[in-house]
Every structure is written in structure tokens, then in C-alpha cells.
Nucleic acid binder design. Structure first.
Length: 457
RNA sequence: GGCGUCGUACCCAAGUGGUUUAAGGGAUCGGUUUGCAAAACCGCUAUUCGUCGGUUCGAAUCCGACCGACGCCUCCA
């Protein structure tokens, strides 16, 4: 099955066609670095990573960018509040974003452009818009004029019956948006010089110009959180498509929100979950699985019960994986029907819950064979391939250490003693030794074949 | 007010016209196995998909109304 993606431009699933062969260019709107990103933010960032991984699975060579918004009102507020510098604030939270991304196993992007590194290009770009009569100046601010751009409204139906009630006289049209903001007193030292005076670029222009510079204004896929669809993405594409002949992006993908108690998780509501803390308490694999266990276009509520459920799921996978012997990867890399079902699910608009279902059905099928003692070499290879395939997307199990080959001497000795106790039917000693091993971080289970040792994860 | 998304078992969550008398995970209960425990396996748990109508040979899936939740329209992943 070929890759299908839900395109916000058409509100339909479409077969993905790249602009040039096996190369795909993607851009995702990244964090505004005035604070550490919360779990809701990371739902979106993990979604970008999912897309990247699924594209790779389909043999595409991806060129990805996730920007760092380091010019923004909230950052300026923080700078004033803490009486510090812009760089001081932004570098701190940029680092936090990068560290958390990496601990959640988000594959590195090709670019993480910072708005501050593209201000000259932004000024140039805004001037081009003015020269083409698409933008106008008012009190040192530059606005994009939507009247001059007939295609405005690709994401949202615009109702134009409200202009009478609009008292804001600082711009011509209610929907005109800022390309350049004139310097205000509270901006302090945060400003850039331009032909229109001191000021700074507007958010929509930042993204547009970074895409223009890095990708020549042409993307295969543009992603973002659902809240950015309008007006951010509308404005971003309007200004750039007003002066270039081709689309800014052929596909636009939007991730739904993470809710807490039925409300959007946000910093302003104060209901956000601290990712760092959550990872520390549960491990990054569980957090990753939680974020991937619902489809990216559905609303998800956060609660501890779901995290606990994910923990159990991972335990189940790890237990299964501990039965699998690593195979030579070069032989027999053929996918069977089970593998293909998994791939098909992901190719159907990144349907991770369905893919998980396929994977767990396979696990149960193989566990049954193991229980019945009919699990053979071919099943092992199949399982190993599936684990590898599964991990290439979900990335939540440690495949390099399928078997614990380094068992400490102390643990080995205890196992020997326990076996002796068991041979003597000394159940009390056997149980004591089991408790002792448990305290040391090892789970021992008895089966017909003897003791099985598992390291606690 | 305008635009949009969603409502599936005890909880989570796929499915969006017939292969589904609804995947998968968690939970409960019962069973197999076991000295015990754990794990694993098997079985039970939605004749039903917010409600009411309509279209159709056939609908959870399409259409309409209503109820409920959420989001965007101002910064926001």
C-alpha cells in the first residue's frame, strides 16, 4: 500500500507524491523558547518524528527542519522580568528542547533554524512584498494586505461581514497581519534596524522566510499543531505564495491537542505536564508509547492510568523480546504478511494504534507457539524482523540487549544455590533467594525448563 | 456569533457502506500450567457504536435534526 496522508488543504486522505523522486522536504513549526516545552508540545514533536520515520520506512530520503522561534513577545516579557538578555533566555530553553527531544528519541533534524539568524532575509522579503504592493506601512509597522491576495482563506472560511465593528484603525483590514513590528519601549534592546525604522519581524514572517531560505520556498510537507492552522499557517502561506508561482507546501499535516481534564494543555491554563519529570518517573519509552498510542488527529486526554497501561504494554513487549534470539540481519530480511499489515497501518495516515494492534496480535500468536513449544527458527527470524521493524517506528525497546548476556557472578551464584534448593524441594530457601534476586533488580521465574532470569527495566 | 473536530465496552483505543454478528491494550472473573508466585495461553465481558429520524438490499460508517465535549476566530504544539 502506498503512503496516504490526511491533507489539511483538502480535508482528505491523499496518496503522497513527492516533488522529486525519493527526496522529501518537511518543515514543522517548533517551540517558542521562553519556557520548557510541555507534554502537549511534545505530542506534536513526536508526531513530526513519526512522520519522518514512516517516510524513511518507505524509502524516502528526508530533509527535515523544525525551527526555533527565538523572537517573540513572551520571550521579551521574560527578558524584562528577569532583567537578562535575549540570548540568555532563548539558549537555555532551546537547550532544554533539544535535550528532551533527544531523550524522547526524536531523530535529529537536518536543520533547527533560529529566527534571529534570518532577520536580514526577513527584511529583504518584507521589502519585496512592499515592492509588489502586497504590504503597507503604518506607524513603523508593516502589514500584509489580504485584499491584494485573493486566495486568502485556504484553511478557513473567512467571513468578511465584521469590518464595521472593527475599531482597530491601525490597519486597513481586520485580517491584515503584521510582517514587521515597530520597536516599542518594552522591547528594550531587542530590535533590529530596517529601512522602516527599528523593530522586529512578525512570527508568520519568521517561518515563511526560513522555509524560503532553506528550501527555496517549496516543501513536500508542512506540519504543525492544529492551533497553528489558522491564522499562522494561513498567513505563512499567504505571504509567500503571493510572490512565488508554486505552493509553499503540497501537504499540510496538523496534530491534535493533548488535553487535561478535557481542556487543552497549555502554559496559560497552568494544566501542563512537565515532560522532564514524567520521563524521570516513568522512563522515556513509556512517554513515547503514550504519545503514539492514539492517532495523531484525535484529541487525547492525559492521565496517569494511561501511563500505567503503557508501562504494562512495554513489559509485555520486553518479555516477548527476551525470548527472541538476535538473527544475522543480512539473511532473510523478507517481510511476511504480518509485517506488511503493520506497514500498511502506518502508511494509512500514520495509524499507530492500528499498527500496535497488528504488532500485539503477532506477539500473542508467537507467545502461543512458545507456550506450545512449537516456536522454530523461522518464527524467531520473523519475530526478530518484526521487532526491528516495530522499533524503527516506535523505538521503545532495547534491541541490542535482547538477552542479558552479562549476568553478574553474584547473581549467577544465587541462581545455582536456588536451583539446588529447588532440587531439594526447599521451597522456603528458594523463595528467599527469589526475593533477594528481586531486590538486586532481577526477576526469576520458574518454568518447565528451569529458571528464567529477567532484568528489571 | 462564524468556522471546524469529536462522542465506539468497566478504562483506553482502531475501524468510517457488506471480508467486522466491531481490531488491539489494560482491568475483572473463570480455566490450563505451577510447590507457590510470576509469565504465557484459552474462555467470558458492546446483538451494539451519544439520541431520534432518513437514504440503502445492507450503516458504527452516508444525510438531517437534536444533545454533549473540545478547538480555532487574540499568543499558543
Amino acid at each position: 500500500m502506498s503512503l496516504k496522508l490526511y491533507n489539511s488543504l483538502t480535508s482528505k486522505k491523499e496518496i503522497f507524491k513527492s516533488i522529486s523522486g525519493k527526496k522529501v522536504k518537511t518543515y514543522g513549526c517548533g517551540p517558542t523558547v521562553y519556557n520548557s516545552p510541555h507534554l502537549g508540545n511534545f505530542r506534536t514533536f513526536v508526531f513530526y518524528d513519526l512522520l519522518n520515520r514512516v517516510l524513511k520506512m518507505n524509502g524516502y530520503k528526508t530533509e527535515t527542519a523544525v525551527n526555533i522561534t527565538d523572537i517573540d513577545d513572551k520571550i521579551i516579557d521574560k527578558v524584562n522580568e528577569q532583567k537578562t538578555t535575549l540570548k540568555e533566555v532563548t539558549s537555555k530553553y532551546e537547550l532544554s528542547f533539544m535535550e528532551l527531544s533527544s531523550s524522547l528519541k526524536i531523530l535529529p533534524n537536518n536543520y533547527n533554524p533560529r529566527a534571529t539568524d534570518y532577520v536580514n532575509q526577513m527584511i529583504e522579503f518584507i521589502q519585496t512584498l512592499i515592492d509588489n504592493d502586497l504590504a503597507y506601512e503604518m506607524d513603523g509597522n508593516i502589514f500584509f494586505s489580504i485584499e491584494k491576495y485573493p486566495h486568502y482563506g485556504k484553511f478557513v472560511k473567512i467571513n468578511d461581514d465584521l469590518e464595521i465593528e472593527d475599531i482597530d484603525l491601525s490597519k486597513k483590514n481586520r485580517s491584515d497581519f503584521t510582517l514587521w513590528k515597530a520597536r516599542k519601549e518594552k522591547d528594550g534592546e531587542i530590535f533590529w534596524k530596517s529601512q522602516w525604522g527599528e523593530g522586529r519581524p512578525g512570527w508568520h514572517t519568521e517561518c515563511a522566510v526560513m522555509i524560503k531560505t532553506l528550501f527555496n520556498g517549496q516543501l513536500d510537507i508542512h506540519c504543525g499543531g492544529i492551533d497553528l492552522k489558522f491564522p499562522h499557517h494561513e498567513n505563512e502561506s499567504a505571504q509567500i505564495e503571493a510572490i512565488q508561482k508554486h505552493n509553499l507546501s503540497n501537504y499540510w499535516l496538523h496534530a491534535e491537542h493533548l488535553n487535561v481534564d478535557n481542556e487543552k494543555m497549555s502554559k496559560s491554563l497552568g494544566n501542563f505536564v512537565d515532560v522532564k519529570k514524567l520521563i524521570k518517573e516513568n522512563g522515556s519509552n513509556i512517554v513515547r508509547l503514550f504519545l503514539l498510542s492514539a492517532h495523531y488527529r484525535t484529541k487525547v486526554s492525559f492521565n496517569q492510568k494511561k501511563i500505567d497501561d503503557c508501562k504494562k504494554m512495554i513489559n509485555k513487549i520486553n518479555r516477548f523480546a527476551s525470548n527472541i534470539i538476535k538473527s544475522d540481519e543480512k539473511i532473510n530480511l523478507k517481510f511476511s504478511e504480518d509485517h506488511n499489515k503493520f506497514i500498511d497501518a502506518l502508511n494509512d495516515d500514520l495509524n499507530t494504534p492500528e499498527a500496535l494492534g497488528v504488532f500485539f496480535s503477532f506477539v500473542t500468536k508467537m507467545n502461543k507457539k512458545i507456550a506450545e513449544n512449537s516456536f522454530n527458527d523461522s518464527d524467531n527470524i520473523k519475530s526478530f524482523i518484526f521487532l526491528k521493524l516495530f522499533n524503527s517506528i516506535f523505538d521503545i525497546i532495547d534491541l541490542d540487549n535482547l538477552q542479558e548476556n552479562e549476568i553478574p557472578k553474584e547473581v549467577q551464584d544465587l541462581l545455582v544455590s536456588r536451583q539446588e534448593a529447588r532440587d531439594n524441594k526447599d521451597w522456603k530457601l528458594s523463595d528467599n533467594l527469589r526475593d533477594k534476586l528481586s531486590e538486586m533488580g532481577w526477576i526469576v521465574e520458574d518454568s518447565v525448563d528451569g529458571q528464567n532470569l529477567l532484568k528489571k527495566k
